[in-house]
Computed example of a mutant assay.
Amino acid sequence: MLLRAALTAFRRGGTLTAQPVSDCLAVSLEHLAAYNSVCGFGLRDALPLTYPHVLGFPLQMKLMTGDGFPFPLPGLVHLANRITQSRPLTLDEPLEITVSARDLRPHAQGTQVDVVTSVSGVWEGVSTYLHRTGGSPGSGEQPQRPSASAVWRVPADVGRRYGAVSGDRNPIHLHPLSAKAFGFPRAIAHGMWTKARCLAALEGRLPGAVSAEVRFRKPLLVPGRAEFSAREVPDGWKFAVWGKRPHLLGTVSAA
């Protein structure tokens, strides 16, 4: 998979013609337990809201490394992720997973595209990726730092542990040396691990029909210290992860 991803470096952009890819699978209790352990979820019949994302990851990679996806994977930036479910999925039901790509559109720094994972007609995850070609990030509205609800000590091996359960073994997450080869001072945590860790902190307080949306900001270097904040609002929750700057900003609302 890593070799196929590396070979996409020769792409120079173009049209989006990738066709959807699908599979049907059953949940492995051993795999689910390992995922819950690294992300902080308790083990229960209902699957964590973020878990279907990792189940769909092999199909996501198949689509993005295959013909019809216009961008090289090295350097592709994960900007945002939105997950919506109409009811919780359970560990004993077979899951029909389909991954597609849509909505190629301009961005101030290049072009963005959505990779959509759909599961059994009740769960959908939309990951927005940026292919940089130039320009500078817009200043935008600078978020105000919230009061911390908890302080996380993020260990150096979290990228390797999450990579093992998610299949996402991007070198920027695995080791300081491989991360430095891509311009980072040391390894960085997966954005989807950070989102999962936030939702684990809210476990038991979210409705079954729910939507959780995050925007990824500055990478979270590991090992590191991060402040998690969460506050209840009329339509759900607002949460964030901060270091010196924001790493992630998110909202949860009833779907």
Rank of each mutant, 00 (worst) to 15 (best):
G68M: 02
G68T: 01
F69G: 06
F69N: 07
F69T: 02
F69R: 09
P70A: 03
P70V: 03
F71C: 13
F71V: 04
F71E: 03
P72D: 07
P72G: 06
P72N: 06
P72T: 00
L73I: 03
L73C: 01
P74F: 04
G75W: 00
G75T: 00
G75K: 05
G75Q: 03
L76Y: 07
L76P: 14
L76K: 12
L76H: 05
L76G: 11
V77I: 15
L79Y: 09
L79P: 09
L79F: 06
L79E: 10
A80V: 00
I83P: 03
I83F: 05
T84L: 07
T84K: 14
T84E: 14
Q85V: 01
Q85N: 05
Q85D: 07
S86L: 12
R87A: 15
R87D: 10
R87Q: 12
P88N: 15
L89H: 14
L89E: 04
L89S: 11
L89T: 08
L91P: 00
D92V: 13
P94W: 05
P94V: 03
P94T: 04
L95I: 07
E96Q: 10
E96R: 13
E96K: 15
I97G: 01
T98P: 06
T98W: 06
V99P: 10
V99G: 09
S100R: 12
S100M: 02
A101P: 06
R102I: 01
R102F: 00
R102K: 15
D103I: 00
L104N: 13
L104S: 11
L104M: 07
